[in-house]
Write a protein that binds this DNA or RNA. Structure first.
Lengths: 195, 195
DNA sequence: CGTGTTGACTTAGATTTTCTAAGCCATGAA
DNA sequence: TTCATGGCTTAGAAAATCTAAGTCAACACG
């Protein structure tokens, strides 16, 4: 028993692009540049030997084959997503508990101000702290700090936090492994890095 | 709409390992070393924050979570596999038409002799030729040659062809893009590289 | 009509991921 | 005991992937 699986990362790029009918919007969802998505999709088409999109000067159209491929692949991804949520559940609707180290919470950062105001998804509960042990003990879901230290066993995302001047401040978002990469954290990352 | 997808290549390593209950056998199926599979699975477990296997000194056991994850993931992969076969059909049961360039077909190579005798899967039809245009025209499915040239637009796998002395001869298997990576070709690659 | 914006594309080079190779260790068979 | 098996780890090599920068065609607007 063995499957015929195309390159799965390319498949993911296809699925997002087809759903949005845009490499640009797909690239936002996948947190990469449009060029990367374009390359991935091209390599998928090459490996299948099948044209999936018609490229228009401004935007995309699915070919007949692409059209029939999309729902099947989306269903499979949904199944994987559900299964994953089932064996490794994440927030289950509660607030995302975000720790923010003092130096970041003190100064006014547009992104953090926005969080503080609330209203965005994911809903968050902010605390000023830099205590990794709270993360480990499950009192906190993620911790935003300036120190680039990535303690072993935890997941760390390095991000560039915009400051009012237009520049950016390097920071690190530390996450418990079971939460890293989940939708809520991905959305938070996007919120934080947006100007 | 967005999914929670773990690293998909790691997921593939998990699925194969769980099905075989062995990194070793999974690595044969995936055509990589056992170490690579071990690493992939470990990184999946880390990213989910969940233990999927119990490692015994000789062999694997699924944990309860692994056990419940496996069938869901297998189904999703089967769905992707079926969908892929549907939009980009490959052989549909007919013989795999293999071209072999004269220098390789002349000398006696254990792997090629085995092919010639037949009996293995995939069933093949061998022809002595080195004519790439036959590939392009669809008269041939794959072409095995000594020249490492990889003509643009075709897929090429570099392989090491065992010779009776125990050494190996570098060769190239050229494939139409739509066929590259399909089960039949993967099996052929395995046959050819086996001593 | 220019001019600006958008969103596709390509390419080189950097970065990150993934794989291999080699060695280690515990088990069980000969 | 000695060997084979099949896990594990690690460094470094190899491959895949991403970014950055620049191109081009379509469209909207003044």
């Amino acid at each position: 028993m063995s499957y015929r699986l195309p390159p799965l990362n390319s498949l993911r790029a296809f699925e997002a692009s087809a759903r949005h009918l845009s490499f640009k919007r797909a690239s936002d969802e996948l947190c990469v540049t449009p060029g990367a998505v374009s390359q991935q999709v091209k390599s998928l088409e090459a490996s299948l030997g099948v044209q999936l999109f018609r490229r228009l000067p401004r935007g995309l159209l699915l070919t007949a084959k692409g059209e029939s491929y999309l729902p099947l692949i989306s269903n499979a991804f949904r199944a994987i997503s559900d299964a994953t949520e089932h064996v490794a559940p994440t927030l289950k609707g509660r607030l995302l508990r975000v720790g923010i180290s003092r130096p970041l919470s003190g100064r006014r950062h547009p992104a953090i101000e926005r969080l503080r105001r609330g209203g965005d998804w994911p809903r968050t509960k902010l605390t000023t702290t830099d205590d990794l042990s709270k993360l480990i003990d499950g009192k906190l879901d993620v911790l935003l700090r300036t120190s680039p230290q990535s303690p072993p066993g935890l997941h760390a995302d390095r991000i560039a936090l915009p400051v009012p001047s237009g520049a950016a401040l390097p920071a690190t978002l530390v996450t418990l492994p079971g939460l890293a990469g989940c939708r809520e954290v991905r959305a938070l990352l996007r919120l934080l890095t947006r100007a």
